[in-house]
Structure formats: structure tokens, C-alpha cells
Design a binder for these strands. Sequence first.
DNA 1: ATTCCTGTTGCAATCGTTTGCAAGATAGTT
DNA 2: AACTATCTTGCAAACGATTGCAACAGGAAT
Lengths: 343, 343
Amino acid sequence: MPGGQDKLTRTTVRTITDLARLAGVSPGTVSRALAGKSLVNARTREKIVDLARTHGFRPNQMASGLRRQKTGVIGVAIPLGHDVRQQISDSFFMTLLGLLADELTDKGYDLMLRRVVPDSDPDWLDRFIGSGMIDGVIVIGQSDQFDRIEDVADGYRAMVVWGNHQEGQRHCVVGTDNRLGGRLAAERLIAAGARRLAFLGDTGPMEFAARFAGAQDIAARMGLPPVLALPTHLSPDRASEEIARHIAQAGRAIDGIFAATDTLAALCLTQLRAQGLRVPDDVRLIGFDDLPIARQTIPALTTVRQDIAAGAHGLVDLLLRRLAGESTESLVLPPELAIRETA
Amino acid sequence: MPGGQDKLTRTTVRTITDLARLAGVSPGTVSRALAGKSLVNARTREKIVDLARTHGFRPNQMASGLRRQKTGVIGVAIPLGHDVRQQISDSFFMTLLGLLADELTDKGYDLMLRRVVPDSDPDWLDRFIGSGMIDGVIVIGQSDQFDRIEDVADGYRAMVVWGNHQEGQRHCVVGTDNRLGGRLAAERLIAAGARRLAFLGDTGPMEFAARFAGAQDIAARMGLPPVLALPTHLSPDRASEEIARHIAQAGRAIDGIFAATDTLAALCLTQLRAQGLRVPDDVRLIGFDDLPIARQTIPALTTVRQDIAAGAHGLVDLLLRRLAGESTESLVLPPELAIRETA
DNA sequence: ATTCCTGTTGCAATCGTTTGCAAGATAGTT
DNA sequence: AACTATCTTGCAAACGATTGCAACAGGAAT
């Protein structure tokens, strides 16, 4: 039964040496043949490649990585600083991750995902980099780890970070211009008739702080009272009740809400309705991200769009350039207003 | 300046041999000390561990993996068979992925993510397994690769799959009882007053086919007309117009819609409203998954809950058991009705 | 003093692949 | 016939950590 025999021989060819024996050449030649180097005779190469295919041989990437000092793997770290539980399941990060996987695959890299809790493991970034398992690292979100990332950036070039750009920072970052996004949001709320603005969300993370600051810029410029900060957690369960409380307390004293993310905006919309406030008549509402959910709420959510695909592309592109030795500037993406029904 | 000197020495200690020289012992001893083996003198160990810490030494995992023939990495493959673009950003899979990352991290494993397109790379699973980079593999979704997975399962034990359980299958699977879920959904629609049911979604993937079949079971048992299949793609843009068309065509001929996922249900809700159909008065609607979005729609979505956390836990638990040599049964999780406002 | 433990340590082979160097083969030149 | 070139190939040393085995020290037992 040829099938059985195939299976049998297949299992015996595990190493390049096995294959070499089979082909009657040395391991070195096999290695060169499979790598497609020009130093090996065309007929020999063909024979080897054939044998490799029929026996389902795959070179061991660990050994190869060790010898070549490169692994073909890019690490993706998600630091969970502020709100441990939530962020990794946050739609925005997940979407970005999916797109990153696509981009990296296209470029022939594998992706090693690591969720880290900096509070319980302050050494997370060095550990990841020093593991020898990855050729470079993409950090998704600065969280509250800006300083640590800066420290590492001095001695390690193969790193790109998704996040907010700070004047004079040393690590290479890709991200939306959050402050500008905040301005756009506030301007839109005002154009829709709002005068007393509020910002819904934790202002701790840099990205959010910048969005908040952008809104403040506009409020100040227009001579309006300062934007009221309504802090919340990110996890839906806690956020919901916090939002409910905020609205009950400040509800009629404000007429325009800028939510830090679409997810929060959607929750907010539900709570506003539950407390009898009409959107956008009583309160204008604007989100951030332009996630799919923004089109699905009723009324549909006006929001500030981040171009996630461009972000993923930029992260990978910059990282690969850095791996090739180039030094690269940070990439700041322009946000864009997506006007729908809530403001 | 001690800081500078620190940094300098730090960069020089890259290998276990460097550290050995510094500690005045042999590399073997260092290895044993860092691994916490009992064969090394307590004082020596302490000294070595101290040196390692102050110099920020991290053993190279590639080398370690090569020698020990285990890597500490679990592969997670997401086959994109049916609808290439969408699935990886599908909320359900992303949530599952996040939870898997948590579970694996807890157990001390890293996660290597690979999105594969079986149509363009029929060899995807063997390639992943044979790469030597992973100790085991979790496949998220059988997609249309059931047979290939079955083939591999015969010769490779370190694999667990998220998906649908088939009578007599050979690979170890964790998943919700989709057929039962379909029954629950149909029963609920009927209890809410529906008589002419439709199933919204592609019935190609096994999970969806089982949900559809479950609904058919009930329709047949109750003597109702067969459930109408309304096929759609999964990507939101295409799905939206397809749903609109379905509703325009079949709209008033049906009074109960069972959507294959909450995401589709949410889109459907929007389209129903756009076409002037009231939910649940004119049409009852039920989803599947119980994603966060199910609570955020208006009216809130009735749905069939999958316990994603239990799924992630089960996948990791079974895989680790298999790595330890146990042979394990598949795990079928019971779905649960989450009754809200749409049915 | 000799023998036998027990507890530590070093030595060197090993994991599987890659690659610089040198040797062998073949063809082409004078 | 001798001598270059040009291709191919094999040899063996890496990459860095682990581990079986042997060796050594010091103490206890005889």
C-alpha cells in the first residue's frame, strides 16, 4: 500500500541531514538548494527540492533562526496598563491587530502576540526583546509606559509603537493626531449647536489626554466654558453605570458630549435615551475611531475616524525599514470627521 | 558615571558563556543555576542569579528551544476559508483570541498568531506544525478545512480546534453545540410569535450549517414551513446591501429572523428599521454569540450566548493535557438563551 | 589511612541549520 | 600537456543553551 509507505518514509525525514542522505549529497548542499542559492547545480537542486516536497520536509526554524540570528518573527506587545481587563478585547486594538497580522504575513513574517501587565512585570519590554525569539517589536498602545519605552528606544532600534506623538520623543511612533481629532470633534459639536461640552472617558492614557486637550483648545478659542471631564473605565459593565451616573448628575448642564471612543459613545447613547434625553436635540454626541458600531447605532454615530488600515501598514512598513537599517521618522495620521446623525 | 558603565557592561553579557566567565564558573553551571536545578550550590546560584539580574541577561530562547526540543510557544491558526477578508476582524474570533492570549500567558506560553488562506496555501497546517517553532497548535474555526484537519490529527496530537463537533471525528474540538443553539433560537422566535422563519447568513461553514439545521429541526417538529435561507457574506459592507435586498424581497413573507451572528443581526436590525419593519412587532430577530453589541442595539438584541471564556479555557486546558501525553475527549459547550427585546 | 558517600562542578556532545573555506571536477586556453 | 577559470560540492565550525557523564572536594565511616 503506497500510501502507508509514503507516510512511513515521510516521518523519517526530519532533518536536513536525513534529506541529504536520501539525495546522496551533503547537508550543506541541501541547505543551499532549499535556500535557492545559485551555487548549486540546477539538476541537483531540482532533485533535492523534489525529495523535500514528496517527503514533506520543513527545515527547523529554531535551528535556522539560531544560526542566522534572525527569526522571521515580529513581536506584538499589548501593554495593559490602565485598565487591565478591557483593552485587549477593545475593538479598536483587535482590528488593528488583525490588520497587522495581514500586513506581516504579506511580508513573510510571523507574529508573536504577548499581552503584558507592566504593573506586575516592569521588565516586560526588555524580556520580550531579549528573548531572542523576535526580530523586532510592535507595541500597541503606550498605555502608561511612555518612559519605559523611551528608555528602551535608545538602545534598540527594531521597535515601532502605536500611540500618540510627543514633541521630541525618541521612539518611533505611528498614530493619529489625537489633539487635532479632539479639535475636530469639539468644532463639530459646536457647529451642531452645543455650547457646554463634556469629555467622556479616562484622561489618563496619552491618546485620550490629547483628545481632551484638543477639545479644550477649541472651547477656549471660542470663549466657551472649559470642557467637563467625565472619567470612566473602559470595560462595558463598569462604564455603563458610570456613564449613567454622569448623565444623571451633569445631564442637563451639558449639551455636547465627546466620547473618547465609539464604544463609550454607543454606551452613552443608550444611557442618554434611558434617561429621556434626545440625541442630537438635547445633547449632541460624537465618538472616536469610526468602528463598525458607529454605523449601527440609532441614530448613527457621528465620529472622528482613525484610518486603522493605514496605521497597520505604517507600523509594519516603518519597522521593516528600521530592520533594514534605515532610521525613520514617526508617522502622524490625520483624523477625519465622519458626520452622521448624532452631531 | 556608574549609569554609563552599567549600560556598557550590560551590552556585553549576551550569552550564558559571558555570564559564566563573569561568575568564574562554567556555562553548564550557569545554565543549571538559572534553571533553578538542585544540583548547584546555593551560594553559587545566588551569585549567578544576581549577576544575571544586574546585567539584564536573558537566555536565548531559540537556542534553548533547539536543544530542549520545545519552544514554549503555542501556534494559533486562523484559517480564512470562506470569506477571506472578514473573519479575522470578526468580533467573536478576536474576543476568543484575546482570551486565549490571557490563558496561554497564565500558563507560561507565548502565542504565535498565523492567519492562513487555505485556498492559496493548501499546506498551511503542516507548514505551521513542521516549522519547529511551536509546541502545539490551536486552530480557530474549521472553516472549510475539516478534512485537512482530520488528516493531520491522525499523526499529530498537539492540536485542538475551535469548531463544531461531528459524530465520530478524530480531531479534538472545543465548541458550542451549534445545533442545539439553533433549536433554542427557533424555539424562542416561535415563542415570541413568529411562524415563518428565516436564517440569515452563509450556511457553508459547519458552525452555521449546524445552527441552520437546528432551526430546521424545530420548524419541522412544529409543523411550520421550512426555514428560509438568506445567504450573506460576513463583511459588513457587502452584508448590509445583501440584507437590504433580502428584506425587500422576503420582508413581509417572514416574521422571524435567526441571524448567524450578532454582527449580522445588528446590521439586519438597521435594515429592518430602514425598511419600516418594526422589531419585534412585525419581525422577531435573534442573534448568536452574545457579543457586547447585543446589549447596545435598540431594541437590545435577543441572542444565543456562547461562553467564549469557557471556550478559551477549554482549548488551552485540553491542549496542555495533550502536550502532557493525555488523550482527551472533545468538549461541547451548551449554548444559552439571552432574552432581551428583539424576540 | 583507606574506602565510600554526597554534593558540586566542569567537560564535551548535542539540538538542526547555515556558511566560509578549500578541494574536486569540468571545461577552456595557450 | 600544463595551466587557468568556473562550477559544484564537502568539511567543519559556528549559533547559544542544555545535560549525561565523569571528576573532584570534603566529610563520614570503617
